[in-house]
C-alpha cells in the first residue's frame, strides 16, 4: 500500500540554522508512526511544516493526492490533518464543549446570515455538531465537564480535550505532539490504549512525537529518529532499540563501549558527554 502522508526531502532553515534537513517520511494508512529524537532534533518543526505553520523551504509534503505545501493551515486542517500541541493550546475563555464546537465550523454549511436569522440550516448544523461534540466528550470521559471553563480542567484532562478537539475535525491523520508529557507510568499505559483505540475506531493514521520511550516503543509500528534535523534511523521499535546511531544520539558514543545498550532509557538523558566525538556532523 502506498503512503498516505508523504514527506519528500523536506528542508527548513531558520536563518542560518538548518532545523530540518532532507527528511523523507512515508506514513502508511492506519499506521502509528513515531517521530523521536533528542531535544532540538526538529520533531515539532516537522509537525509545523506538515500543518503549514511554517513554510517548507525545500521538498514536498503530500496527503494522498493533495499537495499540502501551497495550503494555509486552516485549509490543511480541512484536508484532513489534525494536531495537538506540545504546550497545550486551548481556547481559555471558551467552555469545554465550545472548544470542540469551534472545530465544527469546518464542516458548517450555514453562513453568517443563517446565524443571524437562526434559519433551519443554522439549527441543523448546531444540533449536529452539538451531538458530535457531546459524544466525543463522552468518549474522552469529559462529558460531565462540558460546561466548565477549559482552563479549569486538570492537566491530563486538558490534553484529552485537545485530542477530542482534534478528533472533532474527523481527520485522516492525527499528529500528537508529546501527549505523554507529564504523565506517570499508569497514565502513559492508558494513553497507549487510547491511541490504539482511536486508530481502530476512527480509521486513523497517527503520527506521534514523544520522549516517553515506554509509549513510543509500546505503541508505534514504525519509528523515524531525527537528530539535529537529520534523519538518522528508521525501522520497527526493535530495530530502533538496538540501532547504534540512535544510541549514540541519545547517550553519546561512549555508552556503546560500556554496555550492549539494549535498554533505551524511559526519559531521554539530556547530557551529552562533551568529550565524546560527534557521531554525526
Amino acid at each position: 500500500m502506498s503512503a498516505l502522508l508523504e514527506l519528500a526531502s523536506v528542508t527548513k532553515y531558520f536563518g542560518g540554522l538548518c532545523a530540518v534537513s532532507d527528511v523523507s517520511l512515508a506514513i502508511k494508512k492506519n499506521a502509528i508512526f513515531g517521530l523521536i529524537g533528542p531535544n532540538g532534533a526538529g520533531k515539532t518543526t516537522v509537525f509545523n511544516l506538515i500543518t503549514g505553520v511554517y513554510k517548507t523551504d525545500k521538498g514536498t509534503i503530500r496527503l494522498g493526492a493533495t499537495d499540502l505545501l501551497p495550503l494555509r493551515p486552516s485549509a490543511i486542517a480541512r484536508a484532513g490533518i489534525a494536531r495537538t500541541f506540545q504546550n497545550i493550546r486551548l481556547f481559555g475563555q471558551l467552555s469545554v464543549l465550545e472548544n470542540l464546537l469551534v472545530a465544527g465550523e469546518l464542516t458548517k454549511k450555514a453562513g453568517i446570515f443563517s446565524a443571524v436569522m437562526r434559519s433551519r440550516h443554522h439549527h441543523a448544523d448546531e444540533d449536529l455538531h452539538l451531538a458530535e461534540a457531546r459524544s466525543l466528550l463522552e468518549v474522552f470521559e469529559l462529558g460531565d465537564k462540558a460546561d466548565d471553563a477549559s482552563t479549569s480542567l486538570s492537566y491530563g484532562n486538558q490534553r484529552k480535550l485537545e485530542i477530542a478537539r482534534a478528533m472533532m475535525l474527523k481527520p485522516k491523520v492525527l499528529l500528537l505532539d508529546e501527549p505523554a508529557a507529564g504523565m506517570n507510568y499508569g497514565e502513559a499505559e492508558g494513553l497507549k490504549k487510547q491511541i490504539r483505540w482511536l486508530r481502530d475506531t476512527f480509521d486513523l493514521t497517527v503520527v506521534l512525537v514523544e520522549h516517553n520511550m515506554q509509549v513510543v516503543m509500546g505503541v508505534c509500528d514504525e519509528i523515524q529518529v531525527l537528530d539535529h534535523g537529520e534523519p538518522i534511523a528508521y525501522g520497527t521499535p526493535e530495530q530502533i532499540r538496538t540501532d547504534e546511531k540512535v544510541l549514540a544520539a541519545y547517550l553519546g558514543d561512549e555508552s556503546l563501549a560500556m554496555g550492549q545498550g539494549t535498554d533505551v532509557p524511559a526519559v531521554e538523558l539530556p547530557v551529552k558527554d562533551p568529550n565524546a566525538p560527534e557521531a554525526h556532523s
Binding site: 494555509r72 486552516s74 481556547f91 481559555g92 471558551l94 469551534v102 465550523e105 482534534a166
Partner: peptide
C-alpha cells in the same frame, strides 16, 4: 464562537480549520 477562539489562540484555531 470561532471569532472568540481566534482571539484566544490564533494558531490553535487555524489548526482546527478557522481561517
Amino acid at each position: 464562537r470561532a471569532l472568540r477562539a481566534l482571539r484566544e489562540d490564533e494558531i490553535a484555531s487555524e489548526a482546527v480549520g478557522v481561517d
